[in-house]
Design a protein around this nucleic acid. Structure first.
Lengths: 151, 151
DNA sequence: CTTGACTCTATAGCGGCTACGGGGTTTTCA
DNA sequence: TGAAAACCCCGTAGCCGCTATAGAGTCAAG
C-alpha cells in the first residue's frame, strides 16, 4: 500500500509517518519506480504498535527501546518491564502534581466570585503575593506541563 | 539590581529572564553605561508574578493576558475569571486522562510478571494487539503529554 | 486535457526554555 | 598589580513530536 493508505489504516497523518521514518522508528521502505513508498502488513503492524505506545504517552525513545526488544524475540524482557514501571511512576507523579495544581487553582478562583475592577480582583492579587505549597518543578521524570492546544 | 541578582531574588535562570524580555512579558529595562540590565522592585514583582503563574502551569499567552489586566486596574476582571475557569477545566480533564492512562499501563504491566524472552513478554504482545478504551487524543484544551525530562 | 488528489523533498515553526560560542567587564584574592 | 573567576552582553541552535509550508512531480477521473 502507498503512504496515504497506510495513513488511513493506522489513523496517522502522512507527515507523521514520514517523520517516524526519518526518526528511525520505521525502516526505510521499498519504493515504486516513481519513488513512492510502498508498505506491507508488517510495517502497518509496526506503525500500529508505535501509535499504541504513543497513545500511552510513551516517548519516541522509549518506543525505540520497545521496538528493539520486539525485533529480538530471544532477549530477556526485564528492561521492558522496568521501562513500563518507570513510565507508570512518572504518570502517577504527574497525576499528583496536577491534583495539587487543581487544588491551588480552585482556591485561587474562589478569591474572585464576580467580575469587578482588576485592582480588586482576588485572583490577580493572589497571584501577586506569595503562596507556598509544593510547586511543580518540571523535573518529575518526564511527565510534563499543561499546554498543548489542538482544538 | 543586575540580572544575576534578580535571578536569585526570583529563583529564575538568567537566560529565562532574558527570554521573557524577548517574549514581551518583561519590559525592556534601563541599562548601565556598560549595557548591563538594571532592575527595580517593580520588575522583580512582575517576574515573581510570572513565575507564580508558570508554577500553576499557565502558558505565557495566558500570563500575558493576566498581565494586561494587572496593568490596567480599572478594567473589569471577568476575563481573568474566565481564563482561570478554563485553565482549571483543562487541568481537570488532563487528570482524568492520566488516570485512565495509569489504569491501562498497570493492566498492561500485569501481563508480564517476570523477565523472560521478549517473544513471550505479555507487555510487548499486549502492545501489538488492539486495546480499546478512550485514547488520549492530544486535543484536550491545552493540558499536554507525559514527557519532559529534566533530572 | 485539465483538474484535482496524491506523492516527493527540504525547510521552518510551535512552546518554553536551555545551552552554546565568542566577546566584554567587574570583582576577588594572592 | 595582575591574573583568574565570575559576571554581563548578543545571537543562534537545540530539545520533542509533530505540523505546515513551498515547490515539484505523478496519476486517475471527467
Amino acid at each position: 500500500m502507498k503512504i496515504g493508505e497506510l495513513a488511513k489504516a493506522a489513523d496517522t497523518p502522512v507527515e507523521t509517518i514520514r517523520y517516524y521514518e526519518r526518526s528511525g522508528l520505521l525502516p526505510e521502505t521499498a519504493r515504486t519506480e516513481n519513488n513512492y513508498r510502498i508498505y506491507g502488513e508488517a510495517q502497518r503492524d509496526r506503525l500500529l504498535f508505535i501509535r499504541r505506545c504513543r497513545g500511552l504517552d510513551m516517548s519516541l525513545d522509549e518506543i525505540r527501546l520497545l521496538l528493539r526488544f520486539k525485533d529480538s524475540p530471544d532477549e530477556n524482557c526485564a528492561q521492558v518491564n522496568a521501562l513500563l514501571d518507570a513510565h507508570i511512576g512518572h504518570v502517577s507523579v504527574r497525576i499528583g502534581e496536577l491534583k495539587n495544581l487543581e487544588r491551588q487553582l480552585k482556591a485561587l478562583r474562589k478569591t474572585c466570585r464576580e467580575a469587578r475592577e482588576s485592582s480588586q480582583c482576588g485572583i490577580l492579587n493572589g497571584l501577586s503575593t506569595c503562596q507556598e505549597s509544593a510547586p511543580h518543578t518540571g523535573k518529575t521524570g518526564h511527565v510534563h506541563g499543561t499546554h498543548t492546544m489542538k482544538s
